[in-house]
Structures are given as C-alpha cells and as structure tokens.
Simulated scan of single mutants.
Amino acid sequence: MLAAMLPAAADAQRDPILVPEVSQHEVRVRQGFTGTELLLFGAILDPQGTRAARGYDVVVVLKGPTEPIRLREKSKVGGVWINAASTDFRSAPSFFAVASSRPIAEIVDDKTAAIYEFGTNFIQLSPTGEIDPAEQARFTAGLVDLKERQGLYKSDDRGVSISEQVLYQARIALPSNVTTGTYTAETFAVSNGRVVSSAVAEVEVAKVGFERFVEVFSRAQAFWYGLMAIGLSIGMGWMAGRLFALI
C-alpha cells in the first residue's frame, strides 16, 4: 500500500506554487474618478522555490462583490414598450473579468471551465425561483450582455503574458462605474487540462472624501437622506423655473 501511494505523493510535490501580487491593494474612488488599471502579476515556482520545471497556462479571474439583481424583459405591446417577464439573481458579481495566456477552450474542457468560472459564459449567477432552463439561459445571456456593454464583464484570452516560465502578468481595467467593496483576484496555474495550483489576492475599492461621507450618511440615516434628496430636487426645480421665467 505504501509503495502505491508514493507516486501520487511525488506528483503532488511537483505541483507549482503561485506567488501572486497586485499593483494596488486599495483603489480610492473620489470625485472625477475615471477608472483605473490593475496589474496582476507574480511567479510560478516549484516547491523548492526555483523555476518550475515545465510550462503552465495561467488564468486570472477578478470578481467584485456579489449583489442581488432583478432583470426585466421589455416587450412591445400596441406600439408601447412595457415590462414583461422578469427573473431574480441572488448573487451576481458586480464586476467580472477573466484573462488567460491562451483561449480557455485550448486550456481546459467546459466542465473544468464551469467549475472555476473561466469565462463570462461560465459565471455562477444563482437565479431564484422556478424557471424554465431555456428561459433561464436567455436571461443569463441577457444579463451578461448588459454587463459587458457597461464594461463590467469582460474576458481576454490573450491577457496573460508569461516570461521564462516563471513570471506572469495581466492588466485588467476597472471602469468608473465599479461598485465599492472587496474584489478577489484568483490566479490559476493549469497543466494538461488540470488546475494544479491557485492563489488569491484581494483589492479594496472604496469611496473617499465627500463621496464617502454621502455613502455613509445614506446608509446610516436613510430617512433623512431621502428627505434631503427630495428637498434638493424640489429646490432645484423651483430655481430652474424661476430662471426660465426671467428669460
């Protein structure tokens, strides 16, 4: 029994170690924020801390905080567009980006890609309620398409570069409309269609300055914040009316 277990143990010892790093562990969102670019980089080493003995593919998955989303479908009735069918997703990522050293289809099979969410077509969105599988697929594709057009979901099958089988790097752009919270950057080393190593780094996206004050106040004093917002809207409308009356 011992002799049979030794080859497996030896294979495990040969699996590489990923040492990931991120150019910014904190992204500060303030007035005039136009987005930023994250550099995700690191090294692929063998257990002894030296260069890995063979080449690997690398896949990087960057995900933002999850949020519940209700997606509504528009339907044209009598020449008027109205809300028709809808579905709810419990935990859709607010941001999702995948970068890989080669096209995912050349690295792993669909089953492995689905397990590790290697692509926007493999995102685990957790729909709620009873829904027909075909309709669920249609709503899922619609949500992904909407997020892609907003710049919040993206994939780059040549987005990871690897140097000398050791150093890797990927650049992922965060748009100005990103949600604040903790983002996870997962890096995977893949060999012969199998994920052999993974590592996680975190990035905190937070509002600062006046934007931070407004966000905290709106959560802590939702009632007064709502009254102030209504009062401000009425005041701005009244001022605009007076200005137009004088013209």
Rank of each mutant, 00 (worst) to 15 (best):
V77Q: 11
F95P: 14
L143R: 05
Q24P: 06
E73S: 13
A114E: 12
R70Q: 06
H25P: 01
A85D: 15
R138T: 12
Q136N: 13
I104L: 05
S75G: 00
K74P: 00
A52Y: 03
T120L: 01
P103L: 07
E148A: 09
D88L: 09
K111Q: 08
D145C: 00
N83I: 05
L152C: 11
G55E: 08
G35W: 10
P133A: 11
G129I: 09
V59W: 04
A53R: 12
A84P: 01
F41E: 08
T87N: 02
Q31F: 12
E67N: 03
W81F: 14
Q24W: 00
F122N: 09
T36N: 03
Q48D: 11
Y153H: 05
I44T: 13
T140P: 04
E37K: 11
V27I: 10
L62K: 03
G129Q: 11
K154I: 06
D57F: 02
I82C: 00
A113C: 02
I107C: 05
E148Y: 00
K76V: 13
R90M: 03
D57M: 04
Y56G: 02
R102P: 00
Q31D: 08
A141T: 10
A105H: 09
A113Q: 02
N121T: 07
R28T: 01
A113G: 00
G32S: 07
V27T: 09
K76W: 02
R70M: 06
N83Q: 07
S126W: 04
L40Y: 01
A43D: 12
D110M: 00
V22S: 06
G142V: 05
S126H: 12
A99Q: 07
V60N: 09
P103C: 06
L152R: 08
P127V: 08
A134L: 15
K74I: 10
E67A: 10
T128A: 13
A99T: 15
T140Q: 15
R54I: 03
Q124C: 02
L146P: 01
T66G: 08
I44C: 11
T34S: 14
T140G: 13
V22C: 08
K74N: 06
V60T: 15
L40A: 10
I104W: 08
F118K: 05
D109L: 01
V60H: 06
V59L: 12
V80C: 01
V22H: 04
A99N: 11
I115Q: 15
A134K: 09
F41P: 00
I123P: 07
R72C: 05
V144M: 10
A92N: 07
I131L: 15
L38K: 02
E21K: 10
Q136E: 15
P133K: 10
G78V: 14
A43H: 07
L45I: 02
K154C: 11
S100C: 08
P47V: 04
P93S: 01
T66D: 12
S100F: 03
T34H: 05
L152W: 04
L38Y: 05
T36P: 09
I107W: 02
G78A: 08
F96V: 05
T87I: 15
W81C: 02
V61S: 07
Q24H: 14
D145P: 00
P47N: 12
Y153W: 13
E67H: 04
I115V: 10
G78R: 08
K76M: 06
E135L: 15
S101A: 14
A84F: 01
Q136T: 09
S75L: 07
P133C: 11
P47F: 03
R90V: 03
T120C: 13
